[in-house]
């Protein structure tokens, strides 16, 4: 058990515990805080995978923007601070069975593919200029420039759309 493996096991246990808390906590703001803990654990995992840029982007985008948005939505759609009523619907046992079956199927497929040699490991180190290559590829017309432009259009449309949907129409009357 090398040090990195111990760190991975600790982080993975923390992520799974926090994720389970997200889907089972009654208090929604607490659920959002557990989501933030999960996302932070994911950022640590990205650092373990030597993708430091993605780790910081995870913190900036998910924790710094999406989580704040979720907490804001929670605060705007509640009338009292305490929760009333159950927080799971009637489908929970069926949902548990479906989730477990899905998990089992995915893990089984994984190990089958691994046994048949479907994951050829590269065993090569991550190149030191991967960030620069990423930047160059994102604006290269022969590479991923179309994806970058499509993402830009998607975000612009999403921004305009969400402002249009969430506007207060009562002002217009």
């Amino acid at each position: 058990m090398t040090g990195l493996q111990i760190v991975f096991l600790a982080v993975a246990a923390a992520i799974l515990a926090a994720a389970v808390q997200v889907v089972t906590t009654r208090n929604l703001v607490h659920a959002a805080l557990w989501l933030i803990a999960t996302l932070f654990g994911m950022a640590i995992l990205f650092v373990l995978l030597e993708a430091g840029f993605l780790a910081v982007v995870q913190v900036v985008v998910y924790i710094g923007a999406i989580s704040i948005l979720i907490i804001f939505a929670v605060m705007l759609t509640r009338r009292v601070m305490q929760d009333t009523g159950p927080q799971t619907n009637d489908l929970r046992w069926l949902a548990l069975v479906i989730a477990a079956a899905l998990g089992g199927a995915i893990v089984y497929t994984l190990f089958q593919t691994d046994r048949q040699g479907g994951f050829p490991l590269a065993n090569a180190p991550v190149p030191a200029d991967s960030l620069e290559t990423l930047g160059l590829y994102l604006v290269d017309p022969n590479a991923y420039m179309l994806a970058l432009v499509a993402i830009g259009v998607l975000l612009a449309v999403g921004m305009v759309g969400s402002i249009a949907i969430a506007r207060d129409d009562r002002e217009k009357e």
Binding site: A12, A19, V22, L35, I70, Q87, L96, L102, G103, V107
Partner: peptide, 29 residues
């Protein structure tokens, strides 16, 4: 395996939670 487990926790959250914001949090998972 960690990715699969996290995905399944998210599936359970989407199917079993009542509050729409909680469903969205599970989708993020």
């Amino acid at each position: 395996v960690l990715g699969a487990a996290l995905f399944c926790v998210g599936v359970y959250g989407v199917l079993a939670r009542r509050n729409a914001v909680a469903i969205l949090m599970s989708v993020e998972l």
